[in-house]
């Protein structure tokens, strides 16, 4: 199946409710984040303006930028959580946001019950959940613990379980905010393989990340966001050159 996701001239104003005057002035004085729009009656932040993105099968897009540049907001727009103020978002194929890999995690429920809950919220069908449950249980190495309440688990066990569920997703378009990771070192190799497997069977991935290493490993395209606008776009190397001009120069100096 051919998947695609398109953003055409997308702008997003986020209205702020309950903002009194002092709050307004605090916002007006800050320089990070989006531009502030106080001309209208209500206070609103222009979180994104004029975004054009066109992704097709095989695209792995990295969103790069400082805190508050609009990376997570853009992911929310792609996920359909925020509807754009202007412009159009269209997509073909199943979109799964993975901002939080544990939606609905309830520590008083057993591991098996949580697999069902979390997988349902992540958009898996009952049949998929049934087929994948054994796989998730095997992967997370919880064995008999899977029938006990999650509150009896160690932190590592919980993260293994959640990672196992999140990586069982069958989706066309995956939206990831920072990387997905799991637990202890002995587990890392297995987790890496499973994550690669997930990334390989997904048509399109959009990743918002601060980690240069992760982006370079995973992505083939990148856009640099600044104040909700696309500053530059292109291959990962090209964009990083703009984002880390100083570091790039340093590297050049060392190699020459």
């Amino acid at each position: 199946m051919q998947s695609w996701i398109k953003l055409h001239n997308v702008s997003l104003d986020i209205p702020i409710y309950g903002a009194d005057k002092s709050f307004r002035s605090i916002l007006a004085n800050r320089y990070v984040g989006g531009k502030l729009n106080t001309k209208k009656k209500s206070v609103s932040v222009t979180a994104l303006s004029n975004i054009n993105i066109n992704l097709e099968d095989g695209d792995r897009l990295a969103l790069i930028g400082h805190n508050g540049a609009g990376k997570s907001t853009l992911l929310s727009v792609l996920a359909g959580i925020y509807a754009p103020t202007h412009g159009k978002v269209s997509h073909h194929g199943k979109v799964t946001p993975l901002f939080n890999i544990t939606p609905g995690l309830d520590t008083a429920d057993t591991g098996l019950e949580n697999i069902k809950t979390i997988a349902t919220y992540l958009g898996m069908t009952n049949k998929q959940i049934k087929d994948k449950t054994d796989d998730i249980v095997n992967f997370s190495e919880l064995e008999d613990y899977i029938k006990l309440p999650v509150r009896t688990y160690s932190a590592g066990m919980i993260s293994r379980l959640c990672f196992g569920i999140a990586t069982a997703i069958e989706s066309n378009i995956l939206l990831v905010d920072e990387g997905i990771g799991a637990g202890d070192n002995s587990f890392a190799e297995k987790a890496k393989k499973r994550l690669e497997d997930l990334y390989n069977r997904t048509d399109i991935i959009v990743l918002a990340s601060h980690s240069k290493e992760l982006v370079q490993k995973l992505c083939n395209k990148a856009i640099l966001l600044e104040h909700g606008q696309i500053k530059c776009s292109g291959t990962v190397a090209e964009v990083f050159e703009r984002y880390y001009p100083v570091e790039a120069n340093k590297e050049e100096a060392i190699t020459t």
Partner: peptide
């Protein structure tokens, strides 16, 4: 090739 680009022209549908 660059399939996504930022445009500077503003075309909004608030007509």
């Amino acid at each position: 090739m660059n399939t996504f680009q930022s445009t500077t022209s503003v075309i909004l549908d608030n007509n």
